[in-house]
Design a protein around this nucleic acid. Structure first.
Lengths: 334, 334
DNA sequence: CTGAAAGCGCTAACAA
DNA sequence: TTGTTAGCGCTTTCAG
């Protein structure tokens, strides 16, 4: 069942059959319809390898997830399903590589990328892969799109969420509830998302004339454990509300608070960031800033497609909006 | 940079260059070395599409994960990293499709499979996809390997873990600790893994002359919630130890027990199954039966490779051993 | 709007 | 052991 068969059976040349099936507008409607119907009737499927060889396009996208295990990064784990769906819906394959980049990469990764197995690659990492990214984008000519990651130094196409706006929403929410003695557990200072979230929070607070002294800001590492430790350190400050820069740390904060005999939200209100699926089933369900992972994934795939056909800028950044999801970990003081 | 260049620069024909690089033994050592060195020097990479077209092999494996979200199935989530690594190490690409199968499938899935994008596909599901599997294996001629899934009706190559042995180990462990009033929360009765785990447990118990009456066996659904509910129902039986057929349900059981003011392991010992990563960080850390996901993944990829080159039987089943990981959720009664 | 023809880069008989 | 020669199935100029 090749294109030749379809062509012969429809009484056209192979070229016309090809054009008809690829929707080339220079084919008379009647002809195209006939060919398409015949292809359908014969159960024809284009041969992927042949198409790729002839056209120079594989219709396969790669995705690199440097995280060792999906368990310690629930946030990133969400993307794999969303990205897979977004790609499949556009009829693109999604090749997955769970490996480090550069030195920490499996050697197979570069071999595959260099042999033209994919048209572009998504990178979902959080740092220190600049060299690899530059090399594959510039030297190999394989477009790279960063997703939800904040490589500070890399000027590449990327899609992120609105950290700044999210931080601000938290400030507004807390102010509205009447909190004035607030604190925050940030992500690593080195990361842009941490910085934006903090900045948004701080500026939002400022608008409500709420102070955020140095002792009310402690740095975490975006992990459950670091959230726990940070919250312990914050106990002395006795905040009535804490903005924790991601949900995983918020879960750690819950544990710390429970350990200290404090109740959420009676004694202290907690707001997270990300809205990972488990945040809903915590006790109490976590008020948090939602990142729309599906939306971000759709944006990422579309951006990639444009990068591949050259219609995207060299460093477009797409910001996906965030929303505040009010649940039961915050309480009004009024 | 094509094979032609490498051939020309090494003073051999394209055929010889191809043979040299693919390790064909019919090439004189000196020649091969020369070609390989030249290829290396020139930074040559085989063109994947051309190779696939000419050889009829893509070196890409597909993987279908019907689960909606990786969050509600932590067990399966582990496989995606492990499978990715196993594939990459053997220089195979791994294409991921997170979609249902059959009616619930994205239409893109079948299009891609039918266009020969992959040499074979792994299915990580748990049921009701027999029609799809049969069709792609038999009609499309694309080998299918089931991983950690228990499609009861499907006679296909598969790799599973030793559920029977695992269940038995739990019985031995509990008996050794002096428990005699034991109970179990099983997985869905319809699933083979549930059946095997229960059967192993029951037969192990029998060897120690321990009874397992009907009231001590309650069926769960392999989810956190079902584990909680099942444990609640088991409270009346007042078991001193409960074998819960997977870790996620065990977590639910923890919650139920805590809610009922019972302590683990003081009042009741709990044993899980799977050893998902979080089981280690529960309070108390969960004693459980470990499935070696990495090992299973390696077995699966190797089995697939054999299925592709026709050296595997039509329904080989590989059983990966399980091990008991003793942690702190079980206590000795002696 | 359609067809003829030239490859895309590689592998695999078949010869030598 | 190596080279010659056909393709693999498709896309895409270039004519018509």
């Amino acid at each position: 069942m090749t294109l030749d068969d379809v062509a012969r059976m429809s009484g056209v040349s192979r070229a016309t059959a090809s054009r008809s099936l690829s929707g080339n507008p220079s084919v008379r409607d009647a002809t195209r319809l006939r060919v398409v119907a015949m292809a359908e009737a014969l159960g024809y499927r284009v041969n992927h390898a042949a198409q790729a060889l002839a056209s120079g396009q594989t219709n396969v996208l790669g995705m690199v997830l440097p995280s060792g295990s999906l368990t310690d990064d629930r946030y990133r784990a969400q993307f794999i399903g969303a990205m897979s769906q977004a790609a499949t819906q556009r009829d693109k394959g999604l090749m997955l590589w769970m490996t480090g980049l550069g030195d920490r990469a499996e050697p197979g990764l570069d071999r595959m990328v260099q042999s033209g197995m994919v048209d572009g690659v998504f990178v979902l990492s959080n740092g220190a892969d600049k060299a690899w990214i530059d090399r594959t984008a510039d030297r190999e000519g394989v477009p790279v799109v960063l997703v939800g990651s904040r490589e500070t130094q890399v000027g590449r196409c990327r899609v992120e969420c609105d950290d700044l706006g999210g931080g601000k929403m938290v400030a507004d929410h807390l102010a509205e509830l009447g909190h004035r003695r607030v604190a925050t557990i940030t992500g690593p200072r080195s990361r842009l998302d941490s910085q934006y979230r903090l900045e948004g929070f701080r500026s939002g607070l400022a608008e409500h004339d709420i102070q955020l002294p140095g002792s009310a800001v402690v740095e975490g590492g975006f992990t459950h454990e670091s959230g726990l430790a940070a919250m312990v350190r914050l106990l002395d400050y006795e905040p009535s509300a804490v903005f924790v820069a991601n949900d995983q740390m918020a879960m750690g904060a819950y544990v710390a608070l429970r350990g200290a005999g404090r109740s959420v939200p009676r004694d202290v209100s907690i707001v997270g960031f990300d809205d990972i699926p488990t945040s809903l089933s915590l006790a109490p369900p976590l008020t948090t800033v939602r990142q729309d992972v599906k939306h971000m994934s759709a944006l990422a795939v579309d951006l990639m497609l444009r990068a591949i056909d050259g219609t995207a800028g060299p460093d477009e950044r797409l910001i996906s909006p965030t929303t505040l999801v009010e649940r039961n970990s915050t309480r009004s003081l009024r």
